[in-house]
């Protein structure tokens, strides 16, 4: 592919379709983890950013990107991790939020600031939609989630924490 703009677009499409190994319904494009694709002299560089400092999925994601690009004949690519600007849940796309909810995980409240971090009072149950819910544990099965329970349908559910 000679046209750098077309190559860049194609790399973005293929790399962006890689999914989060811990939340397989979300692609890294949905999550906002894919930050940039650079193409220079036929060399491809993909920049990703971690959601949490200790997110163990990053190595896996980098590997999956390399594999996906190689498979599509777009490699070899260099995948780099960048820290700035720091990821926030606001990087997550509307499509991502919808997919998260359909999967049974309550999406993060928008405009995640420090106040939202602790000010979240109303989290809708992703199963029945009720707002009558309560936090069971602030730390869940992965760094990005907390555990909640719906008082209406009694089902427990994960909430993707504001960050």
């Amino acid at each position: 592919m000679a046209d750098p703009a077309a190559l860049r677009e194609e790399v973005w499409r293929v790399a962006g379709a890689v999914t989060d190994p811990e939340i397989p319904v979300l692609s890294i494009a949905d999550l906002g983890v894919l930050r940039e694709v650079r193409v220079a002299d036929g060399r491809v560089e993909v920049l990703i950013t971690p959601t949490y400092s200790g997110c163990p999925a990053m190595t896996m994601i980098a590997l999956e990107i390399e594999l996906a690009l190689a498979k599509a004949g777009l490699g070899p690519a260099v995948v780099k991790t960048v820290l700035a600007p720091a990821w926030t849940t606001d990087f997550m796309s509307e499509d991502g939020r919808r997919k998260l909810k359909d999967y049974g995980i309550a999406p993060p409240a928008k405009a995640a600031g420090r106040r939202a971090l602790f000010g979240v009072e109303v989290v809708e149950c992703p199963q029945c939609g009720s707002s009558d819910t309560a936090e069971i544990a602030p730390f869940g099965s992965t760094s990005c989630k907390s555990l909640w329970q719906c008082k209406a349908c009694r089902e427990p559910f994960d909430y993707f924490k504001c960050h």
């Binding site: 200790g54 997110c55 544990a137």
Partner: peptide
């Protein structure tokens, strides 16, 4: 169980910060 996850989560955050 909840505390098990909380302590591991906090430890993981710290490990991630150390790595950076």
């Amino acid at each position: 169980m909840e505390e098990e996850m909380a302590l591991a989560n906090m430890g993981l955050d710290l490990l991630g910060q150390a790595r950076s």
